[in-house]
């Protein structure tokens, strides 16, 4: 039941993990104890994803126009 906060993984990865957890519960031979662990992880992911959905403007950076002069 540990809830160590992992280093932030990409949105895509977290989203995939949440979907995998939801899919895991579709299985027939689901263990209750493991289910609770997955459930907790899922809630953590969901909260993190929602937080990120609220956040941050697009970050814009310009690449120098003279592409060919760049090394």
């Amino acid at each position: 039941m540990c809830m160590v906060t992992k280093a932030k993984q990409s949105f895509a990865k977290s989203f995939q993990e949440l979907e995998d957890i939801a899919a895991w519960f579709e299985g027939n031979d689901v263990d209750l104890e493991e289910g609770l662990k997955k459930f907790e992880r899922g809630m953590q992911l969901a909260s993190d994803l929602r937080e990120r959905l609220k956040s941050a403007e697009v970050k814009i950076e310009q690449i120098r126009k003279k592409f060919d002069q760049e090394q």
Partner: peptide, 12 residues
């Protein structure tokens, strides 16, 4: 639509 994405602009 979205946030937190990085856009690398090439001005042409």
């Amino acid at each position: 639509r979205w946030g937190g994405v990085r856009v690398l602009v090439q001005d042409v």
